[in-house]
Design a protein around this nucleic acid. Sequence first.
DNA 1: TTTAATTTTGCAAACGATTGCAAGAAATAG
DNA 2: CTATTTCTTGCAATCGTTTGCAAAATTAAA
Lengths: 343, 343
Amino acid sequence: MSGKKDITIVDIARELNISISTVSRGLKDHPDINKDTRQKIWNKAEQLGYTANIFASNFRKKKTNTLGVIIHRLHGYFISSLLDGMEKVANEAGYNLIISQSRESYHKEMANAKTMLANRVDGLLISLAYDTESLAHIEPFINKGIPVIFFDRVFENSQGVSVIIDNYKNAYDITKHLITEGCSKIMHITACLKRNVYAERYRGYRRALEDYNIPFSDDMLILNDMNPQDGIAAAEKILQMENRPDGLFIAEDENAAYCMHHLKQNGVRIPEDIAIAGFNNDPISRTVDPNLTTVNYPAYDIGAVAATSLISQLNGASSVVQVMNKIVLKSEVIIRESSRRKK
Amino acid sequence: MSGKKDITIVDIARELNISISTVSRGLKDHPDINKDTRQKIWNKAEQLGYTANIFASNFRKKKTNTLGVIIHRLHGYFISSLLDGMEKVANEAGYNLIISQSRESYHKEMANAKTMLANRVDGLLISLAYDTESLAHIEPFINKGIPVIFFDRVFENSQGVSVIIDNYKNAYDITKHLITEGCSKIMHITACLKRNVYAERYRGYRRALEDYNIPFSDDMLILNDMNPQDGIAAAEKILQMENRPDGLFIAEDENAAYCMHHLKQNGVRIPEDIAIAGFNNDPISRTVDPNLTTVNYPAYDIGAVAATSLISQLNGASSVVQVMNKIVLKSEVIIRESSRRKK
DNA sequence: TTTAATTTTGCAAACGATTGCAAGAAATAG
DNA sequence: CTATTTCTTGCAATCGTTTGCAAAATTAAA
């Protein structure tokens, strides 16, 4: 199958008639080794076509140089930007990224965590699944002293650092915006409220309604899985209401876009009849017509900051990092045509 | 830092007063080992909180159970779906995915390939960068017998398997569609023609024009990097032409969406004034107004098939796979409102 | 020249599992 | 009761590097 077997430092040592340890040191320019010897080693390595076996080296050093990433779902612009940021930082720091998805299942998430543990990742980055309600699967990491960073979908009061944005505040602001644009019946479409991101957005929404004395009733909340068909189904549901809302706050742009599109197709004018706001600042929000009011969720930065923070912990966490428990990135409401009702 | 040190099979062996090899075998239910002994081993492992060190095991077995993935860019719906498919297949087969991006740079691609090699991935999945013109960085894999699968951005006449769609045919079909809808001046907006995906689409476009006797001139081709601002810039350029096109074939949906949006904002009617077609069937194509005519590029399947094919090669490539050099997945033009000019 | 200081190199034990081979124990046959 | 066969278990080498410590070689100091 695989051709001739790999060249190792042993081969180099034998050819040069020197010891393995000298080769090992020479290869990494250890000052103990004579310049000429180093050169000879390099030449021979080159000549034999030697490729360092980092794998073996890592084994000996009990370090894998690998960061585990568990995400809820590998889907769409948001998550790919986030991974982009992570990969950039990790790659530059010489770490590899092992990526796996829980597909919103706690079971899968546990299995993935186990695999990561067994594979001895140096650190873990995780965004929780819909139904994760316990961090039992993360504890082994903590116990072994493997740093864990939570991002986006986090757990309140968890050990380890969380990298997030202020979902509550943004939801509050965007709902308030809809209210000040004159909306008096604002519906909220979101996903499983067990997860902080959705729970917080919902809380912000409710609080804004309350602060402005707008009544809320259960039929103003639609829970779904944020799939395309869910957005359309939500629109359909709204179309069939006798007393339609005049404002819509949807927890994700993609879903908002589908919903808005379907509403428009059925004669609803946006924003005149219904003002709409989304969340994430997905590119889709800038290509729908009218452009979608949304919240700028800096996905790339979340990824980059999470990775940076993890790596700095691995490099002997300065006390500053040690103490940190939550990193909240800047984010803000972006008002566009989909919600501008006043001239 | 890290608490107490790991429990190993040595610890289990010592505690149970049996040999290491027995523990090793017992842990994996080797039939040689007595049932009772196996049970004792499992219990003790459980009790001590043992976590198999796959890393060490892999080292000994000279197998990493890891697949390297090098993509051009971690961005957007297309690539995340593709990775989704890969992750699913890989995960189910017990493989980890190490993902890195070349960011469209050959240099980075080479560096990433080197890292993958040094990390002894069992196989490689790669989509080439814009400016990759040689496979020198891939040769070491071939030489070592490490299987390589190219997907999406491939190289003609390469060793290893390619998983792609028929870009030429789809581009031909979609251009032909624009022509039959009555377009007589069709522009093409695409990216670096060095890459097969763009080159083939261009070729299909040109061929269709030719077959239908539509003249082509250099100003009908716009090359850019497929970023949002590029889409807008292209629209701007078109707006300023004295003799505007009546058809537009853009090599990617996201870019098409930006371009179309900007044209619309400047009073161009779609499809009446200009019919537009994209590529990829990105969700964005279904939320823009009018919906975008496009080519269904089954990203998820590409990823899944690429991973499946790689893994089957690792599992002792049946001769069927051995001989395969190119896997072309089904794909087809999806006609929507953005190009429907006839009633 | 001797001795001390410095520079280079090598020995050998890790790292945590796997595995071919052989030996001991138990069961079956003759 | 011995000879076989079948189960179970253990020995020890191995995977490719790293690294503490000691030894050898070279250079500098006296």
